[in-house]
Design a protein around this nucleic acid. Structure first.
Length: 489
RNA sequence: GGGUCCUUAGCUCAACUGGUAGAGCAUCGGGCUUUUAACCCGACGGACAGGGUUCGAGUCCCUGAGGACCCA
């Protein structure tokens, strides 16, 4: 699909554009100039002339630039639509103002060409703020036909594979990715304002860690050894807490070698933060504070209720409410598996481990029901190798995940800082791996040594930025909110 | 990994049970000095790839590619 050879018709359309390119050169016009100084955004023009009556003319001259998106010819005059990042600006081209030759060349531009316009602002009879062109500059010739000027680009495959076309054709796509950028900037501002510092830890890691997932592997030639693309930043960030940086965050890409789905892309953007002397309750306060603030700042108008406080439900309660099963009573594999068969969840007793069964109950029976933002708290220790044991509930850890729209978008703990317990957790993970679990946590001696120097009590969190943007923008697939999502070749 | 569905012109979409593949936009030619999915006249242009069944396949069958949705 992506690199098909040109069809005959497409070739003709391109040939016509190339011929036009040659014509411009013959007319002494450079089709690919080096710069175009003094451009203002169309939005600024609109802001300066709000509320003018139809028919009003001004002598205020502007220079705008953008892509030619529409043309309505009227003989010796024409209306052109020029689109920049902030929106559309209509241009009125008149042969009597521009001169015959300049007018003919301007109106012979192809849709999709990049053009700069100088002109005075005025308002048409129909009330549209426009520029009366007094001059124009070809800024770059487009050699391929753009998507439909009215319907935009609808084919989702093309929108993902050629995002530039999506951005050219669909204002909603432009708005979405501007929104995404804003969300990321706001997250940084929120943390910066609270004394966090942004840090950068290795993407290429000799041992991967911090999550239960399969990594991508790569090879360093000079060192002649394998490296992993990080699946999380957690362990390095906690080493920085050991080092006394107290409040740190990192916002960047993680990589997980797993399936692709509407909520999984193999590379995705994560923010993790760690705060010394905090626990998971503090982190919950912060998450609902941050996200409800984000929703306000971007003017969220969907049907999710982001207002704090959000419900905080222990995992065992949530599972009991949805399934009638008490995982705290059914504490061994056989008992839980039998009960799940009795409930009709399986025809045959499942062979999964106890934590896998709990995870299944959570993901199949609880997660889909959580529409509005909700914290699920206090997980079994087996599922959480880096979380500290619960201060009052044996067998559980102080961990929460946060959900909305039936999707997890954040995960946090009171961080485990007892190096001896952490060592036991790694050993347990090694046993799971030996039993065939492919998503286990490899033993990280450097991290353990860091803990042995002493890490203060710490609250830590990871939030999936892509998923957060999905929630805040009302999109239902991660590919919608990632500029260039992973696709098959 | 399993199931269902989709792929028609540069773009957006049509075509009853198998019977010569259509429209709008774009493009090209002509007309038009306040239109905005401008308008009017004319023209160009096409079946995801490869097989098969059939007198005849966009339509039925098989294989492959890509995508969407659901399940695991």
């Amino acid at each position: 699909m992506s690199e098909q050879p040109e069809t005959p018709n497409e070739h003709e359309l391109i040939a016509e554009r190339k011929a036009k390119l040659a014509r411009f050169r013959e007319a002494g016009i450079e089709p690919f100039p080096h710069e175009f100084a003094g451009v203002v955004q169309s939005e600024a023009v609109r802001e300066n002339h709000q509320g003018l009556e139809p028919g009003t003319e001004t002598n205020v001259t502007y220079r705008v630039a953008g892509r030619l998106a529409g043309r309505r010819g009227h003989g010796k005059a024409a209306f052109l639509d020029v689109v920049d990042r902030s929106g559309k600006m209509q241009v009125h081209a008149r042969a009597d103002l521009l001169g015959e030759e300049s007018f003919e060349l301007l109106t012979s531009l192809d849709l999709g060409d990049l053009v700069g316009i100088d002109g005075d602002a005025f308002v048409t009879k129909r009330g549209e703020l426009s520029l009366a062109a007094s001059g124009w500059t070809l800024l770059a010739k487009s050699l391929r036909p753009p998507p439909d000027k009215h319907h935009g680009l609808a084919d989702v495959e093309t929108r993902y594979r050629h995002r530039e076309l999506d951005l050219i054709a669909n204002e909603a796509a432009r708005d979405l990715f501007i929104l995404r950028s804003k969300v990321i900037a706001l997250v940084r501002r929120w943390l910066d304002d609270r004394g966090f510092i942004e840090v950068e830890t290795p993407v290429l890691q000799p041992i991967y860690g911090g999550a239960l997932a399969r990594p991508f592997t790569t090879h360093h030639n000079a060192l002649d050894r394998e490296f992993y693309l990080r699946i999380a930043t957690e362990l390095y960030l906690k080493r920085l807490i050991v080092g006394g940086l107290e409040k740190v965050y990192e916002l960047g890409k993680d990589f997980r070698n797993e399936g692709i789905s509407h909520k999984h892309n193999p590379e995705f953007t994560m923010i993790e933060w760690y705060e010394a002397y905090a626990d998971y309750n503090k982190v919950m306060d912060d998450v609902e504070s941050l996200v409800s603030w984000l929703a306000d700042e971007i003017g969220y108008a969907g049907d999710l209720n982001f207002s704090a406080p959000w419900p905080r439900i222990p995992l065992s309660d949530a599972i009991r409410e949805q399934t009638g099963l008490d995982i705290l009573e059914l504490r061994d594999r056989e008992a839980l598996a039998t009960a799940m068969v009795e409930k009709g969840f399986h025809h045959e007793p499942p062979t999964d481990s106890w934590p896998q069964l709990v995870d299944e109950l959570l993901s199949k029976h609880v997660e889909p029901k959580l529409k509005h933002p909700t914290f699920i708290t206090d997980y079994p220790v087996e599922l959480s190798p880096f979380a500290k044991g619960h201060r009052s509930k044996p067998g559980l850890v102080e961990r929460f995940e946060v959900f909305a729209e039936g999707m997890e978008f954040g995960n946090a703990f009171s961080e485990l800082n007892d190096p001896e317990v952490q060592r036991e957790r790694f050993e347990e993970q090694a046993r799971f791996a030996a039993e065939g679990d492919e998503e286990t946590q490899p033993f990280d001696e450097a991290f353990l040594q860091a803990l042995e120097h002493g890490m203060p009590p710490t609250g830590g969190l990871g939030i999936g930025i892509d998923r957060l943007v999905m929630l805040l923008s009302g999109r239902h697939g991660i590919r919608e909110v990632v500029l260039f999502p992973a696709m098959r070749d």
